[in-house]
Nucleic acid binder design. Sequence first.
DNA 1: GGGGTGCGTTGAAACGCTTCAGAATGAATC
DNA 2: GATTCATTCTGAAGCGTTTCAACGCACCCC
Lengths: 341, 341
Amino acid sequence: MAAANVKDVAALARVSIGTVSNVLNRPEIVSPDTVDRVQQAIDKLGFVRNDAARQLKAGRSNTIGLVVLDVRNPFFTDLARGAQDAATEAGLSVLLGDSGRSSQREKAYLDLFEEQRVHGVLVSPLSDVGRRLEGLRRRGIPAVLVDRSATGSGFSSVSVDDVAGGRLAVEHLIAIGRRRIAYLAGSFDFSQVTDRLRGAQEAVAAHPGVSLEVVDIDGLTVLAGYAAGEALAARPAAERPDGVFTANDLIAVGVLQALVMYSNISVPGDIALVGYDDIDFAETAVVPLTSVRQPSELLGKTAVELLLDEARDPSREPRQIVFQPELVIRASTGGPIQRVD
Amino acid sequence: MAAANVKDVAALARVSIGTVSNVLNRPEIVSPDTVDRVQQAIDKLGFVRNDAARQLKAGRSNTIGLVVLDVRNPFFTDLARGAQDAATEAGLSVLLGDSGRSSQREKAYLDLFEEQRVHGVLVSPLSDVGRRLEGLRRRGIPAVLVDRSATGSGFSSVSVDDVAGGRLAVEHLIAIGRRRIAYLAGSFDFSQVTDRLRGAQEAVAAHPGVSLEVVDIDGLTVLAGYAAGEALAARPAAERPDGVFTANDLIAVGVLQALVMYSNISVPGDIALVGYDDIDFAETAVVPLTSVRQPSELLGKTAVELLLDEARDPSREPRQIVFQPELVIRASTGGPIQRVD
DNA sequence: GGGGTGCGTTGAAACGCTTCAGAATGAATC
DNA sequence: GATTCATTCTGAAGCGTTTCAACGCACCCC
């Protein structure tokens, strides 16, 4: 029992294959009677349209390729979910690839997407994929960079203003009276890490009497944060910061746990703590964590929209969309909002 | 500048299109000279093979469809990663769909996969998709159920023995001397939740003098765990369990945080705690959490292997592969491993 | 020199769909 | 009754690949 095709349906419904195709794609131009007859034939034969043939004819697939740096990072899964929703809405599906920060895998996925003649690609780029994306574009496949601003690259991008995020975090610490701020981060080769630092510096610069110490730790993990927290706790009280901003929530959680162990240091009493990303665990940490939230789902949704616009009109000027992060205030900086305007 | 196709390559290399195809797919049967010439033409034209045409001809795509219940759950992303690795190895790619526990979306993804004539589908089934999968199989698309045993369903499956996991957890609690065990869980309509309970019951039944209390909480979240932990702490000490097993790590983390707040209750001193899933945060919790680990990545990898076997030989008998979970012992039950053989 | 053997190459056919120019039909208009 | 027009349907062409029977050629062997 071979799978039925349009020809079989046409034969059973006693119409031409062209009519079957019209029933499938533009039923409004076919007479109701015929639509009925064809539909019955389709049901009877269990016909399911062959997408490969359709795509071959169309010249491109109904798929959007998305390459993320790390599927295990909630930021990216949220982003992927947003992208999927927007794509589904437009009748497209998303092929999700995980580069795992390997430029080899990144390339492999882009090659795959090119063979598939995808509708477009969304990339959270590892390194310099500009040339590769140029190639895709020449073939008519638009690309949008996600989570990285791409001014001047000739591509559209959606990103979050990390400088603003850093500023937001540290201004909040200053607003609640902290004067000796520390920024805890590792992996300073990530632009996100340095952008957040820059924001922190700007906030400090705007407030005389506030100092900023940068603590370079070993990575962006809970364990690195725990070690850093222990080191802070071991300092004489006078040399400890009274406000700590970390490059992400994982570090903050580690710091928090180290401080809770040394129960003589209280959060936020002695040290107020602000993380970044607002992961699920921020809300449910031992001391609920103030954090900077990125609109990840919105990022994915918007990226797809930019992509579709460019697919429709390839000559369109690239646009850089920068989202503003949002500060979520919780107990680790004194809980309910106290704003000083 | 239209994209080059095999015909263009053939013309430039002065060979037939059949030869170009052979260079692409079976270079060993083409003379080295010709391979060179064709390769140069390919490079010069920037030719990239059109996958849609290839698939149309082949009758099926080089893609495996995977539908998971929730991409945000690390268990599934790990599983997906395992599946991707195995698929890549076999020259296939994975189309990842997130049903988000909606049977409508589940159906939509299966429809999509059918249109795509995917090589096979992996499903962590929401409800009864048996009939739907039967339909796919009739069309030559094999299916493997993941994270659910499917004995007697006619399909292969990979799953983890949750009964064994529950037994493992509670036997460990008993082995370290606990006698009043509590099982904290919500959502008792999930088979995983009840299977783990069954394992716990078996372990208790095998040890006279040990009691098991089942505490039904509101969901499987950190917050639900926190509430349950507070309730435990509020009990008179004599009525508190001395060993707690939770249906997942999130609950355990919540319990842990509630207990740590009431600092008169020590973990593991007063209450030993075992979670389930071994999420990243288990290792880095305030008190590192003993947990039952599921080989999620291996699950994905194995599922793909079963699928490929069935794709190669459709008459193959379905197989049910059940993995054994593993207990990871950490500080919440007394830390370094103490094994009684 | 006829017949066999292998190697490398050829090119038409087929995969299943969509599209589109044109045919068929019936109704409306002069 | 001829003309126009709208509506509905037809069927061949074409998308770009893989496959496969057939072909040419060189070589070897009696």
